[in-house]
Design a protein around this nucleic acid. Structure first.
Lengths: 203, 203
DNA sequence: CTGATGAAAGACAAGCTGTCTCGCGAAATG
DNA sequence: CATTTCGCGAGACAGCTTGTCTTTCATCAG
């Protein structure tokens, strides 16, 4: 066998390029959920190459999920979470979260539709959000700001920061992204806080 | 051709029976979303019969949707809506709505997954809910009970009475149906009402 | 009896996923 | 330059699914 050592350079690079080209094609075909064949043809790639690179259709959408969560603007969310004032933290988290959904809407709808074959990968991703919400509820509680029990606060935040709530207002009611954020924020603040901010208050 | 007049009795009756047997089999296979073939086999019916009766796979799930909305306990919701007190109306509507989702959860998840082939039939069904919510918001407003603008109230109610909000708490957070109703009701009341009921208040 | 009808049975086309094999051409190595 | 090694195209094949159509049969109405 005497396997040679193999330092890849151009090979790995071009492999990465085809990988990206396939993923970009998936984005391009959204919101319609494409077949593997349709993706391969539009990407100018053999269908077997898609299976070679991603293993399966589920693997392809799993990669899409990772891509969405790596790219889609989580920096703002991280910034918001680090704010020393828990009220600004709440406001920033709801707004940043909503904007992420707004940018990634088509991909998230597709991923939700593929959820059955994704074996809980979506749910695992959501665990991160839950952890953040528990942290937020703890901070609000420590500052004596909560008007409801802490676990109730977590449940309410869970509902309001989910993609489903966003999409109910955005697609279901036709509201622009910033209006959706406003509605969700008002609901969170008035439900959770002992002393809700006045209407139209600006930070 | 001289087509005869045809009074169906036993024939139509047995046709209705096979129709019901097929629909019941669909319920039986939930929450897994069955293929037409799987339904036909378990119902003891030829696959072609399913197509004869329902026209297509989409037609089958369209019939399931109608069945769900005819059966699933809308009587309580109608009762709640007729209450003279708008606060009881709000409370009854949220609770009855949540209980319907609890009973029909598997079917509704399946229908949501089939939504793409249902051509907006789900959305059309939701129009009824929206109408009821607008009516509720109007009544609350007329009694001077609203703490937010009427259209905001509609949007908030729309989010909280949607199946997605229910499922986020029930499946996502593992809460029993009555706890879900309590969380949603607290959120609705504290967000919408000028003077929210005290915690633990009983009607 | 005779025509109409509910329903089974099954062939067929088309689209999808998934696996596997063959082979070319280009890059990496010595 | 010769030899590996790897990326990838091409395509066959199996299996599952939806959807259409034809043939056949038993039963019920008049």
């Amino acid at each position: 066998m005497a396997t040679r050592r193999y330092e890849q350079r151009l090979r790995a690079q071009s492999a990465e390029q085809t990988r990206r080209r396939i993923l970009d094609t998936v984005y391009d075909q959204l919101p319609k959920i494409p077949s593997v064949d349709a993706v391969a043809r539009q990407a100018g790639v053999a269908r077997s190459t898609v299976y070679l690179v991603f293993g399966s259709r589920a693997g392809l959408f799993d990669a899409l999920l990772r891509d969405v969560s790596e790219r889609g603007g989580f920096a703002d969310l991280v910034l918001a979470v680090q704010d020393p004032d828990p009220l600004t933290h709440l406001r920033g988290a709801v707004v940043a979260n909503t904007r992420i959904y707004g940018r990634q809407r088509d991909a998230l709808v597709a991923l939700r539709a593929e959820a059955a074959s994704l074996e809980g990968a979506l749910e695992r991703m959501e665990q991160g959000r839950l952890g953040g919400l528990i942290h937020l509820a703890n901070r609000l509680d420590e500052h004596g700001l909560l008007a409801v029990a802490k676990d109730v606060a977590v449940d309410v935040l869970w509902t309001l920061t989910g993609f489903e709530a966003f999409d109910a207002l955005h697609t279901g009611r036709g509201l622009p992204v910033d209006d959706v954020a406003a509605r969700l924020l008002v609901t969170a603040e008035r439900t959770l806080l002992r002393v809700p901010p006045a209407e139209g208050a600006r930070g």
